[in-house]
Write a protein that binds this DNA or RNA. Structure first.
Lengths: 368, 368
DNA sequence: GACGCGATTCAAAACGTTTAGGTCAACTCA
DNA sequence: TGAGTTGACCTAAACGTTTTGAATCGCGTC
């Protein structure tokens, strides 16, 4: 049939643009123009080229394109651990938003270790991702990494946790508010000695949740008892230990700063033969489908996980696109979902709350 | 200080190898040799180069390296939905293994849609990933995609689900065995009318679980009642609907083929005012930390999720490395974890079972 | 002094694109 | 007619690496 081309592309090797050019007897430029349908290409040439593309099953090599365009259409995303059920939805939100704008996600886990985080970032920078979505591990970057980030001039957007030394762009939940509402609800349901199982206070959102907790206590004129505050690490095991420590002091209310620690706590509760909500009221953070099966049904503060990811990705892509506006700190509103674990089904529907403040609070900070 | 270089790299732009070469007054080759510590570079030159690298904060551009080496050190991974709690651990396993060998993971969600899967694969191919880890959506690839895959000659490894038209390399769990054991356990605990909530039978593992179910019934001489078998789609909602349909026929045992559908089922159970294990025994697939909080404690068949991901990644990387040995189908053993949901705490410790077959079954198929 | 021979270093091609800066013919308009 | 203007198409440089084949050097050998 057709044995026209002098140097046919080898089998097991993708056709390149020059293969297509040779096959259709035009210049590389013309093929490129057809592929990106730029400038006007004559109808017959265009058809010849399209024919060749189909015949050779040609797809542009995005690596080469990245090299010349200095854009990879890839964003790096670093989360502490994709296995923590909080993050899949955030990642999914980011992926959905990224996908929609032609970006892909390179995923890394830091295990909340600064060292792993640094090597991940270095790798991502070497791979020339266009931007990075980061849920920062506790701790400060090394000077050389910081220097490199500055030189590369690549945008970061922080997710869930702030870290102003790196960038002011962040999409977080209003943790202060969420914790405040959680504790207020405990107070409203009659609890007076309220304990807290906190995340690592070096992490910004744990600190915020702690602040919200303090604020609510103060406002409700409840005592702050240091014995009733335990710092965990957001993992199950720490919730379990914290639970044992805390419950020995017999609080009548507990606010737990994340889901994993709640699981640990409930295990401790079980071991100690206590009952919720009879012995103590409980409000937890993050909501999940399987919570419907827990008994008692847990009252939780839900964070808009998907939205956290998608808005972060959208902001990042804007930055990549050259929007150098003021730094944006976007705080998304949490939602108190009242169920049974405080034993007091006061009806504050989430619709009501949403209605009173329909927009997520967006704060644009002046550059200090 | 030093204003030596003629064309210093612009600010906001990473130093390139030629910047380093200029700075240290050597050729590009020498820098490359130092960076990859290949061939012998004289001590003084080497030091000059290293000095310049540090000064300019140089890191090689992996895009350029990829272009010339025709390797990206990146593997694409396509899962149905990272939000399905089954997958994060699999992805994590893959990421850990990949990381260890210097590979990164480009993550895509297919939502079990063939169309999304195809566009994801096309994108990954264009990005020249070195290989793809795929949990196949139901359905057949289009001929053009299949052609392209063949031409590109890029290795695939299937995860959790087989699809022999694409490749025989797969890492899956022994679903037949898992389902078989689940149903046998139901039978042993005295259940006679056992129902099944199945995944989509077009998906290989759902089919296998169905087969295991049938086998156990047969072996235990239990009736197969079509009314007691409902096909879901592995999502919560379908488990809920299936639960309603199924429970109206009053089975005394149910085996559910995945966790999400179990959650749906339990919601239906609750609505119908039934009790487990009094009214029916239950065995579910997949185990999770939060199951410790469910009451009754669920008896489940746990799949080695992390291992599924890591072994798949390792196999894939072997293929990338040029190992063209016989196709490998690796079946990992599931583990029956007996708890309370069958109301019969017959003690078959998982240690015992593991002891009898210490190696995961590895089957090397002859090329047909 | 010519030769050979490692060891070290270099210049240039290659990877597959995009794109700036051309060429060339056809058309427009005075 | 001829200068100008368009439109279609092309050539070649560039992106930042790796790698091949060649150049240079020091030095011992005959």
């Amino acid at each position: 049939m057709s044995s026209k081309q002098a140097k046919p592309q080898k089998p097991g090797k993708a056709a390149s643009i020059s293969d297509v050019a040779r096959e259709s007897g035009v210049s590389i430029f013309t093929v490129s123009a057809v592929v990106n349908n730029k400038s006007h290409v004559g109808k017959n040439l265009r058809e010849r080229v399209e024919e060749a593309i189909r015949k050779l099953n040609y797809r542009p090599n995005l690596i080469a394109r990245s090299l010349i365009k200095q854009k990879t259409q890839t964003i790096g995303m670093i989360v502490p651990d994709i296995v923590n059920p909080f993050f899949p939805m955030v990642v999914r939100g980011a992926e959905d938003a990224a996908q929609k704008q032609g970006y892909n996600l390179l995923l890394c886990n830091s295990d909340d270790s600064l060292a792993k985080e640094e090597t991940a970032i270095e790798l991502l920078l070497s791979k020339r991702v266009d931007g990075i979505l980061l849920t920062k591990a506790a701790g400060e970057f090394s000077p050389s990494l910081r220097q490199m980030i500055k030189e590369m001039n690549i945008p970061f957007v922080l997710v869930m946790r702030t870290y102003p030394q790196l960038t002011k762009d962040a999409v977080i939940s209003d943790d202060y508010q969420g914790a405040y509402e959680a504790v207020c609800h405990l107070a409203r349901s009659g609890r007076r000695r309220i304990g807290l199982i906190s995340g690592p206070l070096k992490i910004s959102n744990a600190k915020e949740r702690w602040r919200g907790f303090r604020k609510a206590l103060e406002e409700k004129k409840l005592p702050y008892e240091p014995d009733l505050v335990v710092e965990g690490d957001y993992r199950i095991e720490s919730g379990f230990r914290a639970g044992h420590a805390l419950l020995s002091h017999r609080p009548d209310g507990i606010y737990v700063a994340n889901h994993l620690m709640t699981i640990g706590l409930l295990k401790a509760v079980d071991e100690m033969g206590l009952k919720c909500p009879e012995d103590f009221g409980l409000v937890s953070f993050d909501d999940y489908p399987w919570l419907g099966v827990f008994r008692p049904r847990l009252t939780t503060v839900e964070l808009p996980k998907h939205q956290l990811g998608s808005e972060a990705a959208e902001l990042l892509i804007q930055r990549i696109g050259g929007n150098h506006g003021k730094p944006v700190l976007k705080k998304l509103l949490p939602e108190l979902r009242i169920r049974e674990s405080c034993g007091f089904a006061q009806f504050v529907s989430s619709e009501q709350r949403r209605a009173s403040s329909p927009e997520p609070s967006t704060v644009s900070l002046a550059n200090p």
